[in-house]
Structures are given as C-alpha cells and as structure tokens.
C-alpha cells in the first residue's frame, strides 16, 4: 500500500483565491516522533478510566504521538487532536459512514474504532489521498461526476470507493453499489456516486 496513492491526471487544483474561515490550528498535544510502524505502544497493563495515555498513530504516512483517553475514538483524535477534519461525525455509532477511513487500506468506521486500538496500523484519511494541492483520482472522479450535493458524506464515500478500488480495481456496477452500501447519502446522489466510482476505476487504469 502506498501512503500517497496515485493522483488524477486531471490535476484539479484549488480554484478559489480566498480561503474560507475555518478550522483553526489545533494540535497542541501533537508531536511527531518517528515511530516504527507496528511497534506496540500500549502497555499490557490496565489504564484506569479517565487517565490519558500516549498513543502513536500513523496517519497519512506520518506518525503522531498524542495524549488520549482510552475511550476516545479514532474519529475524535483525528478531528479534535490531530486536526484532520476530512472524516465527518454523522452518527458516531457506525450507521452513516461519513467517518470512513482506511485502516491498513481497508475501509472502516473511525467512530467505532478506539484510537488506542489503531496503534501500529496505517490510517489513511481523505486528506491522505491528496498530492499537495492536487486531488487524488477518486476525488477527481467525484468532481467530474458531480457525485455529491452537500458534501458532508463525501469524505466517507470517497474513502469507501478508494478502499473498494484497492481491493477490486475493476468493479462491476453491482460491486460498486455493494462497496458504497455502508455510506448514507441523505441528499441521495447515489447514481452519481456509482458513476464516479466507475470513472475512478477507469482513471486509475489509465483510461
């Protein structure tokens, strides 16, 4: 698995000159100690409730060492501690898919995953599909197919498609539908999502 997956040939880049008011800098608790992937950090002794532990998370190819309560989910740590807000909270109970990230290349719900459980694994978020300011292939295909409306479920949809295509580079329409059947889109843009997934497969195959 590559930490920086292939990028779309379209090379869509940031269009607006003005930036939006938004997420401020977070990450007070973040440091960047290089840690060998796979190294076990959590000690095999009991961490008492309410106590924070040092958790090393490898996200988009970089290791972040954070202080986290053991009850904090991966979604919470990504968004509130590391400051990656691509993965969205929609339900925080594994029922919408807006928080979908790849763990070791496989789509999972970040809201149902404790951060401490992800140590030693590779996490890829929406931000990790970017190459600098260039969109990744699946993201570019979503733009081309207009595969979203409000865009809030989109990070999860993109990651579900990314995970699908890594496992199955040439999916049928039925496989695509099944592949994104763990991601709700209340705006209902499903048919455009199917088209985007198909288009992304083509782009990845160099078509």
């Amino acid at each position: 698995m590559s930490a920086n997956p292939t990028n779309g040939p379209g090379g869509i880049t940031r269009r607006n000159f003005l930036t939006t008011v938004g997420a401020g800098a977070i990450g007070a608790a973040v440091s960047e100690n290089a840690l060998a992937a796979g190294k076990e950090v959590a000690p095999p002794q009991v961490t008492p409730a309410g106590r924070s532990v040092e958790v090393a998370l490898r996200v988009n190819g970089r290791t972040h060492v954070v202080q986290a309560e053991t009850r904090w989910t991966l979604l919470h740590v990504l968004r509130e501690v590391i400051g990656l807000t691509g993965a969205k909270p929609g339900c925080e109970r594994g029922e919408c898919g807006a928080c979908t990230v790849l763990i070791d290349g496989i789509p999972r719900y970040a809201c149902l995953t404790l951060a401490v459980e992800v140590q030693g694994h590779d996490v890829t978020t929406l931000e990790g599909l970017m190459d600098g300011e260039k969109l990744g292939t699946v993201q570019a295909a979503f733009v081309e197919a207009d595969a979203f409306q409000c865009g809030y479920c989109t990070p999860g949809q993109v990651m579900a498609v990314e995970g699908l295509l890594r496992a199955n580079p040439n999916p049928s329409v039925e496989e695509i539908r099944r592949g994104v059947s763990g991601n709700l889109c209340r705006c209902g843009a499903y048919q455009h999502i199917f088209k985007a997934a198909h288009r992304a497969a083509e782009l990845k195959a160099g078509k």
Binding site: I12, R15, A23, E80, G151, T154
Partner: peptide, 18 residues
C-alpha cells in the same frame, strides 16, 4: 465551483470549526 473544497476536505463545515 466549490467541488474542490468539498472533495478535498478543505471545506470547513460548521462542525469542523475549532
């Protein structure tokens, strides 16, 4: 016109504001 922001994760939704 705002497709890039919405698919790249750079669009800051109110729930992203910190």
């Amino acid at each position: 016109v705002d497709a890039y922001e919405r698919v790249s994760g750079s669009a800051a939704y109110p729930s992203d504001v910190h």
